[in-house]
Design a protein around this nucleic acid. Structure first.
Lengths: 250, 250
DNA sequence: AGTAGTTGTTCCTTATTGTGTAACCGCTTT
DNA sequence: AAAGCGGTTACACAATAAGGAACAACTACT
């Protein structure tokens, strides 16, 4: 651990906790170093744009450089890469297919899946689009829509009755979303395809918004309510892991 | 300028330019120091969360710490908070992307944006820096530079011809700024990217100075001169609103 | 108005601290 | 099996960052 670098990063920490800014003397006191030392550290950080001196002088704040950097970080948060090993664990422990989907307007897109050798092959394709209203993964995301998003979705999409369980009434669908939001998970009870059930949970990103979800899928024989309750803790824990890899704090 | 701190920040810069990550040896080579030195610097940065080692080992990337820090920075830029609802109105009424930018030396930084679900996705990133001379938002601000600022800007920056419409002659550029100053709005006529046009207006703060601007962006098909004239009253009114929220008295 | 007490900033000498050399470990390749 | 590639650790030396003191600019109080 290099002392001067460590000190400079501590300065950033202090400024983070004091958004109104700190002066050189305050910084020096907190660090327990001479003013001149603090000054040199601050100058170096300022040179690189990580902190900036306010025009009223005498206070320093965090600089815009962090915006630039965080942007790069967000870009390289490739969710598939991060989520894949976690999904492998899910599939290994449950011996079921796990899916990762992404919100795309009024649909979800399957962006990753993990199969297990012994799991029954269920037709699913990466890149496939599926409706929101009749899939576990879709509903898990929609449960976190705000009112404007939801009304817009409902007005622009009609509900096709794929199976006898498909929700087609707005009122019932809204109830279902509320229930999902309360429970933190959604179930697709053969609403899209006869004989296929799945359980899905939302993934939160660094902005606290839900654009992805992850699910476990199987035939209705493999996925009784009992099975689902058994898998839920693992699935929820996994989603939390993925969320925190995406920078979701708290 | 403290050498070790400077080096550590240079490492962050290298990692920014290599989102796929860099190894210790590569970092050491770029810095022109011994592997052990690079390693110690990297360790210190990692300790604080600014970089992280990937599980496949052997490469380091920027860490999530930047997300955390950038949130603080955004918070203290309360203009974003103030302007956001107004920008939402703009986007809703025009069904186009709106951007808020801030002057930063010889560039502008995108500090907020509002997209609409149906608007064509245009590549734009929060935190991105863009040149002043070839963007609508940049020119809207530069039009209010005083003579000293402008000559300084012109002497320190060269104009790269991104497209056939990019201004590269000082004389023409000065004329353009005068025109913008007279009219109160600027147009980016595919000067930065082919096929993208935008219209931007300046925002005044409590000191009557212009450090921000707000814009509407779209493809050249969506943003004909006619569209721009149609959107202008809304955009100007919105900028006035934001200005007064910042304490601009007039 | 003058003075005492802030602040940030600069200079210079010293020894603390960061540096490079070299060896080491774990891995893949030949 | 050994050579080559990565990252990691140990250590002696001297370059470099640290601290003290003095400065300038500013505010507040007498």
């Amino acid at each position: 651990m290099i002392q001067s670098v460590d000190r400079s990063l501590k300065i950033l920490e202090y400024l983070k906790e004091h958004p109104k800014g700190l002066g050189i003397t305050e910084i020096a006191n907190r660090l327990g170093v001479a003013k001149s030392t603090a000054h040199r550290l601050v100058m170096t950080l300022e040179e690189h744009g990580y902190i900036k001196q306010m025009q009223e002088k005498s206070v320093y704040r965090l600089g815009l450089k962090f915006l630039e950097m965080s942007n790069i970080v967000v870009d390289q948060l490739n969710i598939v890469e991060l989520a894949h090993p976690i999904m492998e664990k899910i599939s290994n422990q449950t011996d079921k297919i796990s899916h990762l989907v992404m919100l795309d307007d009024s649909h979800v897109i399957y962006i990753d899946k993990v199969e297990t050798p012994s799991a029954v092959r269920i037709y699913s394709q990466l890149g496939k689009r599926a409706p929101i209203y009749c899939t576990g993964v879709g509903k898990a995301i929609a449960a976190y829509f705000d009112e404007a998003q939801l009304t817009r979705y409902l007005s622009e999409n009609s509900f096709h009755k794929f199976t006898k369980n498909t929700y087609t009434e707005e009122k019932e669908f809204r109830h279902e979303l509320e229930r999902i939001n309360r429970n933190g998970y959604s179930i697709d009870n053969e609403e899209h395809e006869e004989g296929i059930r799945c359980v899905a949970v939302p993934i939160f990103d660094h902005l606290n918004s839900v654009n992805y979800s992850v699910s476990i899928t199987g035939t209705s024989v493999q996925m009784t309510d009992q099975h689902i309750q058994e898998y839920l803790p693992l699935l929820k824990k996994s989603a939390t892991e993925i969320s925190s890899l995406l920078g979701f704090a708290q």
